[in-house]
Write a protein that binds this DNA or RNA. Structure first.
Lengths: 212, 212
DNA sequence: ATTTTACGAGACGATCGGTTTAATGTTGTC
DNA sequence: GACAACATTAAACCGATCGTCTCGTAAAAT
C-alpha cells in the first residue's frame, strides 16, 4: 500500500466539469420536456427531440446513456422545477395560506392556456403510460407525487392554523386528494382544450374545504 | 323510383351476419381492450394483439380498415360496456341512490384489483395520449365522458330528491367533478398498484356530498 | 360446375425506433 | 508541435412498426 498516490497527473484533455455540460444537454432536456408533456414517452421518438434543437442523432448517446436515462433525468428535472413553483406560491407570506393554493391554481391554469392546453403534466403523463414504461420510472414518479403532496400538506396545515379550514380536517389526506383530482383535471383539460375542468375541480375542492 | 328493391340477392358467400362476426373480430376487440387499457394506443403494436388470439396479420385488415379504425371501434365498445355497467348500478332499485354510486365504486375497485391494478380506463388512457393520437379520437372520447356524466347526474338527481344530498347542489357539476377525480384516481391506482387512491377520492367525494 | 364473395395466411416493403461503431474534431499536457 | 485524452458526430445496424399484397381455401349463389 501507500503507492505514490500523488496526482498521477493524467495526460490529455481533461473532461469539462460543468458549464458546457449544461449547453447541448440542457437544450435537449428542455426540448424533451416540451415534447413529452405533449405526447408522452413511448409516442415520442428521440429524433424529434434532436431535430428541434438541431443536434445530430449520434450525439444523443454522448449526453445520455439511453432513452430511459433521459426520461429519468427529465422526471427529476420536472419534479424540481415544479417543487420550486409550489414553494414560490405556498411560501408567499403576503397571502393567506388558502389564497396561496389558489394562486398556484391560477398560475397552472395560465401555464396550460399559454400552450393552448396541449401540454399536460409530465408526471401525470408518464404515470398513465406506466404500463409501457421501464419499471425504473415507477418509484421516481411516486416519489415526485409524494414530494408535491408534502409541500401542499404543509400549506394546508398553515391554513388550518389560520382557521381557514376545519381544525379536525386531515390535511395529509386532503393533499393526496388534491393531486389525484388535479391530475385528472389536467387530463380532461388537455382532452377538451379548455381550462374548465381545472376550474371545476378547484372550485369543488375549495368549496369542500370551506364546508367540511 | 320504386325500382325492384326486392333483395338483389347478392351472389357469393354472404358475410357472417352475427355470431361469427362475433368470432375473430370479437376476439381481436377483446384482446385489444386488454392491451390498450394496460399500455395505451401508441405503445401497442397491432401484432401483439394478433399474437394473443393467434390470428395472422393479414386478417386484421380484413376486419378493420386501420389501427385508427380499430381504436375508434374500441372506444365505442368500451363506452357502451361501461355505460351498461353504470346503468346496472345506478338503476338498482334495492339501493338508495347514493348507495348505488358506492356500489359502482366498489365494483370498479374490484375490477382493477382483479388485474392487479395494471389495467386502467381506456377512455382516460387515450385522453392522456391525445397529443399523439389521431384527431378523430378526441370527439369520441369527449362524448363518452359526457355520456357517463349524464348517467351519473341522473343518479345524483335521484339522490337529491331522496334528500341524500343538499337540494341546492348542482348535480350536473358534481357529476363532472366525479369523473375528473375518478380518472385521476385510476391513474394513481395504476401507478401505485393499489386501491388506495380510489378509496381516498371516493371517500372525499362522498364526504363532500354529505357536508356540502 | 363455375362464379362470386368471405376469410385466412404470411411475405414484403418502407419507414422509423433506439443503439453502437468507428471516425473526426478539439484541447489540453509533455 | 506532438501526441494523448477527451468531445462530438456521421453512418450504419437491427429489430419493430404499420400497412399492402398476393395467394389459397371455404362457402354460397348461379
Amino acid at each position: 500500500m501507500d503507492v505514490k498516490q500523488h496526482t498521477p497527473r493524467r495526460r490529455g484533455r481533461p473532461p469539462r466539469q460543468r458549464e458546457n455540460l449544461t449547453e447541448t444537454r440542457e437544450l435537449l432536456l428542455r426540448a424533451g420536456l416540451e415534447v413529452l408533456t405533449e405526447k408522452g414517452f413511448s409516442a415520442t421518438g428521440i429524433e424529434e427531440i434532436l431535430g428541434r434543437v438541431g443536434v445530430p442523432k449520434g450525439s444523443f448517446y454522448h449526453y445520455f446513456g439511453s432513452k430511459e436515462a433521459f426520461g429519468l433525468d427529465l422526471i427529476e428535472r420536472y419534479g424540481l422545477f415544479f417543487a420550486r413553483k409550489l414553494d414560490r406560491h405556498f411560501g408567499n407570506p403576503s397571502l393567506a395560506p388558502l389564497e396561496r393554493l389558489r394562486s398556484f391554481v391560477a398560475d397552472a391554469m395560465d401555464g396550460m392556456a399559454r400552450y393552448e392546453f396541449r401540454r399536460g403534466c409530465l408526471i401525470g403523463n408518464l404515470g398513465q403510460e406506466m404500463g409501457a414504461l421501464p419499471e425504473s420510472f415507477r418509484d421516481r414518479l411516486k416519489e415526485t407525487f409524494e414530494d408535491w403532496q408534502a409541500r401542499l400538506a404543509a400549506c394546508l396545515r398553515e391554513a388550518q392554523q389560520a382557521g381557514e379550514i376545519a381544525p379536525d380536517a386531515d390535511t395529509e389526506q386532503l393533499a393526496v386528494v388534491f393531486w389525484i383530482g388535479w391530475e385528472g383535471a389536467v387530463l380532461r383539460a388537455k382532452l377538451e382544450r379548455s381550462a374548465k375542468p381545472l376550474e371545476v375541480f378547484a372550485g369543488f375542492f375549495f368549496a369542500s374545504l370551506a364546508a367540511g
